[in-house]
Every structure is written in C-alpha cells, then in structure tokens.
Amino acid sequence: MEILLGITALLMALALFSLFSFKAPHGSAAMSGLADAAIATFLVEAIHKYVMGNLLGIGYLAEFGNLVGGMGGVAAATLVMLRVGVQPVFAMVTGLAMIHLGILEGFIVGYLFSFIAPLFKKYLAEGIDVILGVLILAPLARLVGFFISPALDLLMGTLANMITEATSLSPLIMGFLLGGLIKMVCTSPLSSMALTAMLGLTGLPMGIAAMACVGGSFTNGYVFHTLKLGKSCNTVSVMLEPLTQAHIVTRNPVPIFMSNFIGGAFAGTIAAYFGIINDAPGSAAPIPGLLASIAFNPPSTLFMAASAAAVAGLLGGVIGVKIYRTFLQERVPLQQFANG
C-alpha cells in the first residue's frame, strides 16, 4: 500500500504538471521558466554548496551556493513572467517579492501575475503604468505568496513523505519505479530538477532520482546514436542535458521514453541497492546528479554505483531500441530532422 501510494502521488504530480504544460494558456512557456529557475538556483547550489563548499571546504562558495539555493521563488516568478512575455521591470519586481519563498510559490505567483501585469500597460499612460505597476504588484505578489505557501508546503511535504516512506519500506521496488519515472521526466520538456526540488526529495529517493538521470544519460546516447536521431552533437547534448534536444524528443516519444523508463529503472534499482543518498533537492539531472552525490556518499561506493548505473542505462537503451525495432517501428516511424 505504501508503494502504491508513493507512486500514485508521483504520477498525480506528473499528470498535473503535464496537463498544465499542454493545456493551460502559456503553460509550456511557464514550465520552461520553471526549468530555467531550477537550473539557475538548484544547480548552482548543488555544485557550489555541497561539492565545492561542504566537500572541498571552500567557505565562500558554500555560503554563495546556500544563498543562491534560497532564491528559487525569486528566480521562478521572474523567469516565468519573462518567458510568457511580461515587461522585464514587472517580472523583476514580482520576483523580488518572492524572497524567502519557495520555487513553487514563485512559479504560481509568476504565472498568475503574468496576466495581471500587462493590464497596467494597457490601461494606463506611459510612465504612470510603470510607477503604479511596481508599487502595486510587489506587495500584492508578496501577499499571494504568503497566502498559498502553507498549503503548498503541506501538499508537497505530504507527497514527499509518501515517496520517502515507500522507498524506505521497499527500496528496490521503488528504485525501479521511481528511477524509471524520474528519468522519463528528465528527458521530457518537464524538468526533473524542478519536480524534485518542489517535492523537496532528499536521502535515498533523491539518490535514486540522481543516479537514474546519470544512468539514463547513456540510454539517451545509445538511442540517439543507434536510431540516428540528429548528428553527433545532438547525441552528446542529450547525454549532458536532455532538455537541449526537446525538439527531437517530442517528435520521437515512443522509442525515447520507453528506453528511458527501462534504463532509468535499472539505474534506480542499482542506486537503491548501493544505498546512494543525495540531500541536494533539485539535482535530478545527469551532471548535477553525479556531482552533488559526491558530497553524501563514500567515493568507492558512488564510483561503483555510477559505473553500474551507466552500464544499466546502456542496457536499457539496447532493450528499448530492440523492442521498438521489432514491434513498433512500422506503426510509429521515426521523425528525422534534415539539419540534425
């Protein structure tokens, strides 16, 4: 029951964000802004705070990474509004109002206020619109952020606890399921960094997510190379950061996502077996996932787990491509790009 509840909670979160991305007005642009915010804050925090700071002992970078990691709400509100096309000064003042609030609060406020901010420019004279806009938007955005914060913390905390509890009770099963699902998200236009950051995953669940992304990197490399999806530069790019090849992924979802689930599930199971932990929420991506994990695990254990995850990811790609070519290729042909 705990496993069922944990996976159901994750699937509900994925379904909600997918529905928003594809159906809400400017949903895809807003989700891109959220992904940008996760990279701008949690990637910097993961590397500088946990690796350069806590592990290598560089105090300045530890303090700097901790500071940037706490700016998720500011970054999310600002970048979501900029992605949607809001005037930069309105985006910035709304973002600054999210100081000390989480990335999810910033995302929601930024999206809602992207419909309010343009009204100032539409109905007020030039110059007056900016003055009244910044004076009204900032405190109003702060008020909305504070109002929704307790409910969001409770909801995300409950989802994270369900996943964590299920993982502690059945680590190998959750390693398989969680690893497969997170790697699919990592390769999709959604952001696995943003998702794991909003859920606040830490410990073994975050370790599974990180290693799934590391191992799944080799899944993507094999799939792109074998199926000739783009040029060599596309193959290298999708291994380093899958979001850079979203235009190819979305045109060929069947072989890519199927292979990613298999490779991510294998890699996640290996992470659970080795007991890999990661206390850097939002580091669910190939490079940050590996580097952040260095700070929380014995080097020998992490080396063995990462090496085995890479092999497992490669195996997942082989199996996925074989299944696709044998059973699905005629019904779901590949979509190639002339320019790679």
Results as ranks from 00 to 15, higher is better:
I294T: 04
V238M: 11
I277W: 10
I208S: 02
M239G: 06
G221L: 14
I270H: 03
F266C: 04
G207D: 11
L302G: 00
F296T: 01
R251E: 15
G230Q: 10
L199Y: 10
V249H: 04
H247T: 10
A267F: 02
N252Y: 05
P288L: 01
Q245E: 15
V254L: 15
A267W: 00
A292G: 06
V214R: 03
I277G: 14
P255C: 12
T235W: 04
M239L: 13
I287W: 00
S232G: 12
A267V: 06
P299H: 05
A212M: 09
T269R: 08
G215Q: 06
F224K: 05
T244S: 15
P242K: 10
A212N: 07
P255L: 07
G230C: 11
P288A: 02
G289L: 01
G230W: 08
C213Q: 07
K231E: 12
A295R: 01
S237R: 10
P253G: 11
G207T: 06
D279C: 08
A197Q: 11
H225A: 13
L240N: 09
V249E: 05
V254T: 14
F274Y: 13
L240P: 03
T196M: 12
L201E: 07
S293M: 03
I208G: 00
A246P: 09
P281R: 01
M258S: 13
